[in-house]
């Protein structure tokens, strides 16, 4: 078992949370960030993949649509099929949905404007590589920053997501009109996750200022072989106090 794991950060032209994500990973013992260009066709030697936020290829068309068809995404598809962890944050979530690696789609916010602010979230599915460190129902705060974050899926799919436990987290005070207050989901296998909020922006400090760190610490633990919630799990009561 290696001491540290290599996490690929995919950079499309127009990605702009790449450096923030690099910095965030560097703060977590056990994780080593690596750049992955949009023209790469192999993800050899990587243990997990993160698609950071931004405006891939400018996103003048539907968000994520060009990125979803770039060479590296084929490799990400193969990587995901192997059951390895893949996380899309904000624009990364949009790209994964557009590429069919996550169910549903992300539409323009119901208020039709970009929204950047802190949101209360409750974490639901905690048996994923990114949420191992939470207890179900844990309440956290993370910032959002997007214009197309309204999760949409038809009734059947929504029911499926609910029954199969694919809902990663929900907004406490729905900012964008997402169906069922969905802020993050996973695929059926649970190894591919999408999050509209930005955990990489809450890495340092006390209380809510470091809530994002738990997602990356979870990943480090998961890669090290942990599969069950550890005694270190952060419950909602602990988080609420902060």
């Amino acid at each position: 078992m290696p001491d540290s794991f290599h996490v690929g950060i995919i950079r499309f032209p127009g990605t702009n949370c790449d450096l923030d994500t690099w910095e965030a990973l560097s703060l977590v013992p056990g994780l080593l960030p690596r750049w992955v260009g949009h023209r790469e066709r192999s993800l050899e030697g990587l243990d997990a993949i993160i698609l950071p936020g931004g405006f891939s290829y400018g996103d003048y068309l539907r968000t994520g649509i060009i990125a979803a068809r770039s060479p590296v995404m084929e490799a990400v598809g193969t990587f995901a099929e192997k059951g390895l962890p893949v996380l899309g944050i904000c624009n990364g979530f949009q790209i994964l949905a557009e590429a069919g690696l996550l169910p549903g789609t992300l539409l323009q916010n119901s208020g039709r404007t970009f929204l950047c602010r802190d949101e209360g979230l409750s974490v639901e599915q905690t048996r994923t590589p990114f949420t191992l460190f939470f207890s179900p129902g844990a309440r956290i705060r993370l910032p959002i920053a997007h214009q197309e974050g309204r999760f949409y899926a038809d009734g059947d799919l929504l029911l499926e997501l609910e029954t199969k436990g694919q809902i990663l987290c929900r907004y406490q005070d729905n900012p964008n009109g997402s169906l069922r207050d969905i802020a993050g989901i996973t695929n059926a296998q649970g190894n591919v996750a999408g999050l509209m909020p930005h955990p990489e922006r809450r890495m340092v400090g006390e209380g809510a200022a470091a809530h994002g760190r738990l997602f990356f610490q979870s990943l480090a633990a998961w890669l090290a072989g942990e599969r069950e919630a550890s005694p270190l799990t952060f419950s909602s009561s602990i988080l609420d106090r902060s």
Binding site: L19, E23, F114, C116, P143, A145, E200
Partner: peptide, 11 residues
Amino acid sequence: IYRQFDHEVGT
């Protein structure tokens, strides 16, 4: 106004 501006990117 300012909730329409990403005021945190770059952290």
